[in-house]
Design a protein around this nucleic acid. Structure first.
Lengths: 317, 317
DNA sequence: CATCTGATG
DNA sequence: CATCAGATG
């Protein structure tokens, strides 16, 4: 697979700087590290791969692509390469930033994944947008929260599979000046949480995506300096706990790696990827009832082309 | 000078396609060529260079740069290389698209040209904008036409030298749907023309810049197809004649080369530069009284980085 | 320091 | 098919 990795790296122009410069995400750069904290290194910290021919499992991938057009056009992104390398069953995308009119030309993004479900912002064009791209045909699909007030920005797609609901969400960013903090913690988080609890009555739920919150100090490079930054305010962190964790949804990465510093986002602004000054903003949150089926919750930090990297979850069924 | 040409070409990324592919501007691609028309080829159709040590002359250059920031930043434009190659005394720029606040950092664009005069659009930021950059200190400088209605878009700089006034102008484009055609032919052209005639009372006048009009059929690749395109409407062509030519200003390039097809603009939209599907939109118009001093009016088609190329005028004094 | 739109050419 | 701005992250 080394060859495939290289191809993927080379095809993502903005990732060029990483090639041949080591693996910055293995550096523990945290500003106030506790002694037990270690850097998350997917090369050494992932369990052995499962085998399609002998084990029943499902592989989910989630990625905030920060603009799917740019990824495909200028960065020569090949979803086929990503599929070959990661061999996922389902790919969840956030911040596609496409419009409804662009969906058709992107629907067949990856050969072999003929089931794709897209939702775009209609209120602000070229903003937000989520998608689920799947090998398997789902039992049902739904878009948004069912609350018109929260459904004009294309922030949620839900598909129902045999054993669980899968939600792909791009949680509203609180924005510069935290102007949308209130909306996010008083409206979006509670509403999504209720929706999940409602679905959970019939089946386990998996929420994935860019939840736009670094939960704890371990989840952000510079906690002290970001106490009033969107994504690390106390309001967002408490909302994250109250709405999701305390209502029985398990952060699979943190459960598997209680002491691992693993980021999924590095701001473009200060070249944070090279120095591993990042945030963990992307998650898989799963119903307690299937938390023990999470065989491997992982981060794929060596894929460029976005300010976020993909995350994965292998469910052993 | 061959080496310098290559350096310049290589430093302008968008020009890469031309390197090593011959010289498309020497192709006579005109859709309805007359038998006497020939392609303008600066390699064979320019008189021998004058020598600074034995002859008194002045060299003017004019270039619509289509965004000076982009030229300098992304395309690695080096004005020093341009100066070394062309050895001009004065450089006139149009469509700088900079703002007043950016002028200071660009003022010293070229070493040795310490006199620079900039005017920017204040009504629409990042739009239009002209500049004159000079070795010699002018006697006086003025900005605009002196008519507030026409002076908010940074379309004119005038400098006074010993023997002439030099005007650098970016004439308003008539726009899609010709929505600004009326303004351009009933307001701008007559007003600029009157201004020139007024100046001419005291000294000969030279107008250069992007005059946004292909005067005759010879000045555009596809005359038939552009009868209602901004820059080749009959209204603009008649206005060009009436306001400038019939009032005694001489198109120096056309005087020197009555039958040469030489373009100064090739739209990005259909890759017109590679196929020499262009327009002649950039001019030196000079008062009749100094028309015989125009030693060489030329086009510099092998300089990239903009949809226009520079033009030059050597005045033998 | 990126993405996007929309205006402009 | 380019430039730019401004919004957004």
């Amino acid at each position: 697979t080394t060859t495939e990795v290289s191809q993927l790296e080379l095809s993502a122009k903005s990732h060029e700087t990483l090639v041949g410069q080591g693996e910055p995400w293995t550096m523990l750069t945290h500003k106030k590290p506790r002694p037990e904290w270690i850097a998350y290194n997917p090369r050494s910290m992932r369990p052995p791969p499962l085998r399609r021919d002998s084990e029943k499992f499902i592989k989910l991938l989630s990625w905030n692509v920060n603009g799917l057009r740019a990824l495909v056009k200028s960065k020569g992104f090949s979803a086929i390469q990503l599929a070959q390398r990661e061999d996922f069953d389902v790919l969840c995308l956030q911040e596609t930033k496409i419009q409804d009119k662009d969906v058709e030309e992107l629907r067949e993004l990856i050969e072999g994944y003929s089931n794709s479900f897209w939702t775009c912002s209609v209120s602000k064009l070229g903003y937000s947008g989520t998608a689920i791209i799947s090998r398997m045909k789902p039992i049902s699909i739904s878009y948004g929260l069912g609350v018109p007030d929260h459904d004009s920005e294309g922030r949620l797609v839900t598909v129902e599979f045999d054993n669980f609901y899968l939600l792909c969400s791009y949680v509203p960013n609180s924005g510069d000046g935290l102007r949308r903090l209130n909306y996010r913690v008083t409206e979006w988080d509670p509403c999504l949480s209720s929706y999940m609890k409602e679905l959970e009555k019939s089946k386990p739920v998996i929420l994935t995506g860019d939840l736009n919150c670094a939960h704890e100090e371990i989840d952000i490079f510079n906690p002290a300096g970001n106490k009033r930054s969107a994504g690390f305010t106390i309001e967002e962190r408490e909302s994250f706990e109250k709405c999701y964790l305390s209502r029985g949804f398990v952060d699979t990465f943190r459960k598997q790696h209680p002491n691992a510093v693993g980021y999924t986002y590095w701001g473009y602004r200060h070249g944070g990827r090279k120095t591993n000054k990042g945030w963990r903003l992307d998650y898989f949150l799963v119903s307690e009832s299937i938390a023990d089926k999470a065989y491997d919750s992982y981060i794929v930090p060596d894929i460029g082309g976005s300010d976020h990297c993909p995350i994965g979850l292998v469910l052993k069924l």
